[in-house]
């Protein structure tokens, strides 16, 4: 009995067919990534809008250039990570 029980307990668990399970997980991950990207962009836009009134008009061009460079750097880094 003891040996038989050990054998029975050691039998591998039944296979569970994927049936779209993996695809659902990946879709969920993609959806979350999409939202995260949008929320990040929105947060950046809100922060920029909040700061803008305090930037002297003469320095607006330089600030816009710096913000653009920063955005491009983040976008490039994201692309590299995804590649």
């Amino acid at each position: 009995m003891t040996d038989d029980l050990d054998i029975l307990l050691s039998e591998p668990l039944d296979d569970v067919a994927d049936d779209g399970f993996s695809a659902r997980i990946l879709a969920g991950i993609e959806r979350k990534a999409w939202w995260r990207e949008r929320v990040t962009m929105l947060a950046a836009a809100v922060a920029a809008a909040a700061v803008l009134p305090f930037v002297p008009a003469a320095e607006l061009g330089a600030v816009a250039f710096a913000a653009g460079a920063l955005t491009l750097t983040f976008a490039f880094e994201q692309r590299l990570r995804d590649a």
Binding site: L13, V16, F21, L26, R81, D82
Partner: peptide
């Protein structure tokens, strides 16, 4: 699909059966 999601997808496909069977038990 990003490379990150693709490689994670491989992990999900590889381990989903055992994990789901464990949780069913």
């Amino acid at each position: 699909m990003s490379a990150d999601a693709e490689s994670f997808g491989r992990l999900v496909r590889e381990h989903q059966s055992r994990l789901r069977a464990f949780l069913r038990r």
